[in-house]
């Protein structure tokens, strides 16, 4: 019993010290590396059937970004950004509106969900939200591409990434399936000189922290069978002894 009490006290102390130390460990989260990832799924109503994946390794304000796509419009540039500062979500089909008589979802329609641009994921040069958002000559081209680049993001974007509030959006759709960007949905809501198809969101994915390490999916209750059986058998034998006592008592009474 003394040993058991000592063990309980030790366990309590371990739990208590963990509770004290845990907040200290978490307070330091911005200095270690963070890994985020997401699958890129088609925007509803966009007629896109492609998909993709995105991974971001974040160290301070340095973001190493890897994006893979498939099934996008071939031979066409695809603008891609971190969007930040809204719900950290991709827009549902209900966010679509009539554009040039067609139910579709342009970049502005998605803003309440994924937010404004935090960084432009260009292949070379500037990655800012203001100057490079529609730098069509510096974005990846083609239906399936792999993009890999380390960029510096501003504090707001870094914080949004760490808060799991940033969203990767890849733009450029072929709504009428004619193999090129045209004005079937009218002019772009972002730049009237461009067709809406060229800037409409195609693929989207909310960036979430990637889990690391194996899970603790077992406690061993089916492994220490001896202990379990002894406990059970012990209980049953106690019950047997109890009934024998009652038997003796009841025979004395008679």
């Amino acid at each position: 019993m003394t040993k058991k009490t000592a063990t309980s006290v030790a366990a309590l102390m371990a739990i208590a010290s963990g509770m004290v130390l845990a907040p200290v460990a978490f307070a330091d989260s911005s200095s270690h590396d963070d890994e985020l990832h997401t699958a890129l799924a088609p925007i509803p109503t966009s007629k896109v059937t492609g998909s993709g994946t995105a991974m971001v390794h974040l160290k301070g304000n340095q973001a190493t970004v890897t994006i893979k796509t498939q099934g996008l419009l071939a031979d066409a540039p695809h603008a891609q950004h971190f969007h930040i500062g809204a719900k950290g979500q991709c827009p549902p089909a209900s966010a679509a509106k009539q554009h040039n008589g067609q139910l579709s979802l342009n970049t502005t329609d998605g803003l309440p969900f994924y937010g404004k641009i935090g960084a432009s994921l260009t292949t070379t040069g500037d990655t800012g939200a203001d100057h490079s958002a529609l730098a069509v000559d510096r974005f990846p081209k083609g239906s399936a591409y792999t993009y890999h680049r380390t960029i510096t993001v501003d504090d707001e974007t870094a914080k949004s990434l760490r808060d799991e509030n940033a969203v990767v959006v890849v733009h450029g759709i072929d709504f009428n399936g004619n193999g090129k960007y045209d004005n079937v949905l009218g002019a772009s809501d972002l730049d009237p000189k461009l067709p809406s198809e060229a800037t409409n969101p195609a693929l989207c994915g909310p960036l979430k922290m990637a889990p690391a390490a194996a899970v603790a999916g077992g406690m061993g209750g089916t492994q220490s069978a001896d202990t379990m059986a002894l406990t059970a058998a012990g209980g049953l034998l106690t019950a047997a002894a109890g009934t024998l006592y009652l038997r003796r008592r009841s025979s004395r009474q008679s």
């Binding site: 999916g217 406690m219 061993g220 209750g221 089916t222 492994q223 379990m228």
Partner: peptide, 8 residues
């Protein structure tokens, strides 16, 4: 979980 403390 594969098992708990008491069984499967």
């Amino acid at each position: 979980h594969l098992d708990s403390r008491s069984g499967p």
